[in-house]
Amino acid sequence: MIKKIREIDEDIPVIVTTAHQETTFLMQSIELNISAYVLKPIDIYKLEENLIKAIEPKILKNN
Rank of each mutant, 00 (worst) to 15 (best):
P57Y: 00
S29D: 07
I34S: 09
L60I: 11
N63P: 05
I55M: 08
E56P: 08
E56T: 14
I42F: 12
L60E: 14
I44F: 09
A36Y: 01
I5K: 07
A54E: 01
D11E: 15
K61S: 03
P41T: 07
N50G: 05
S35N: 05
V14H: 02
V38I: 14
I52C: 03
T17D: 02
P57G: 05
I12L: 00
R6G: 09
Y45W: 06
K58N: 12
D11W: 06
Q28L: 06
N33P: 08
Y37D: 04
I30M: 14
V16K: 00
A19P: 07
Q21T: 14
A36F: 01
K61T: 02
T17E: 05
K3H: 11
D11Q: 09
E10K: 10
H20T: 14
M27H: 03
I2T: 13
L47Y: 04
I59G: 00
L47W: 02
D9F: 09
I5M: 09
L47H: 04
I44G: 13
E7Q: 05
Y45T: 14
P57W: 01
I2E: 10
E22L: 13
N50D: 15
E56Q: 15
D9R: 15
P41C: 05
M1R: 08
K53C: 10
I42T: 08
M27Y: 10
T23D: 12
D11H: 14
L60Q: 11
E31Q: 15
Q21W: 08
E31S: 11
N62L: 13
T18H: 06
L51H: 04
V14N: 00
A19E: 06
I44V: 12
I8N: 03
I15C: 00
P41M: 09
M1C: 11
N33A: 10
E48W: 07
I44Y: 11
D11P: 06
K58V: 11
V16C: 02
V14E: 04
I44K: 15
L32D: 09
L39W: 01
P57I: 02
V16Y: 01
I5H: 04
I30V: 13
L51W: 08
I42W: 07
E10L: 12
E22W: 05
A36H: 01
L32Y: 06
K4G: 05
E49F: 12
M27S: 12
S35Q: 10
M1T: 15
E22I: 13
I59P: 01
P57S: 08
I12Q: 00
N62E: 15
K3D: 10
I2N: 07
K46C: 05
K53Q: 11
L26V: 14
D43M: 07
N63A: 12
K40S: 09
V16L: 06
E56S: 15
K58H: 11
K4F: 03
V16F: 02
P41R: 09
T18L: 10
V14C: 02
A54D: 00
A54C: 10
F25K: 14
K40L: 12
N33D: 10
L32G: 09
I42E: 07
Y37P: 05
I15Y: 00
V38Y: 04
I44M: 04
V16H: 01
E48C: 12
I42R: 10
T24P: 03
R6K: 13
L32E: 13
I59W: 03
I30P: 03
S29G: 12
L39A: 12
I15V: 03
L32V: 05
I15D: 03
L39F: 08
H20Y: 14
V38S: 05
